[in-house]
Amino acid sequence: MSILINKYTKVIVQGITGRDGAFHTSKMKAYGTNVVGGTSPGKAGQEVEGVPVFNSVEDAVKATGANASVIFVPAAFAADAIMEASYAGIELVVCITEHVPVQDMIKVTPVLKKHGTKLIGANCPGLITPDECLIGILPAMIFKKGNVGLISRSGTLTYEVVNMLTESGLGQTTCVGIGGDAVSGLYFIDLLEMYENDPATEAVVLIGEIGGDAEEQAARFIKEKMTKPVVAFIAGQSAPPGKRMGHAGAIISSGSGTAEEKIKAFKAADVPVAKEPREIPGLVKEKLGL
């Protein structure tokens, strides 16, 4: 078992004819992901990496039955691409594109809600269920099938931690990079709930960052709703105060946002917080009684 994606997931690539879209289509296919199509307006009938290209997501869904999409279009068109996928009935949209304007993501949010679409990102590395399906730009070779779930706001830091888990014999059910933007799709608590309900996941690693209060919310959720152990790490503990958004930023996150506050929230939920990434595998093993 896993969360969000498995070997039956049918993926289309939005922006498949672009440099990044084409490159990662080949990587995803090589991993065994079931990439069934791609979109690029006006280029229907072409093929990229042996995958048929369609003019629209709607056309691609009709022809292939795709239920997931991954977006590689430039930032100015990313929100449009997400909404197109949502209207076409795609269940899971993964937006790799970075630098998407926040107001665009705010406009996307009610559309996702209306159609019940799940969004990962924007500005994220994607997700992987080892040996079954990879959607995004994650380096496949560091992952290994197992019983640990992982959620992270970072990219390379995630790879660093996954590498350590794998090297110490801890494989993963599904690893999800949710992205670090201020307004994005699924948050920690959405995914924690999925891991809690996934029979294969026995422990979860959560990699947070300073800013916002997604980690504090996660801590509350873990305390109230979760039976499975969670281990956390917070990046940015040394970031100086003052790099924040004036009064309004401080007000909206009053009582949360700093590393100290996040660590405190996790400790209160009985979630061990690693002082450095290298401690994470040990803490997971301890929680699993290994």
């Binding site: 970072s154 830091l157 670090g180 990046a235 940015g236 990434p277």
Partner: peptide
């Protein structure tokens, strides 16, 4: 000098630690 924002923050943390 680091590749990736999260890892860059974790690197700063490590130096401080």
């Amino acid at each position: 000098m680091v590749n990736g924002a999260g890892l860059a923050m974790a690197t700063m943390d490590m130096i401080k630690l």
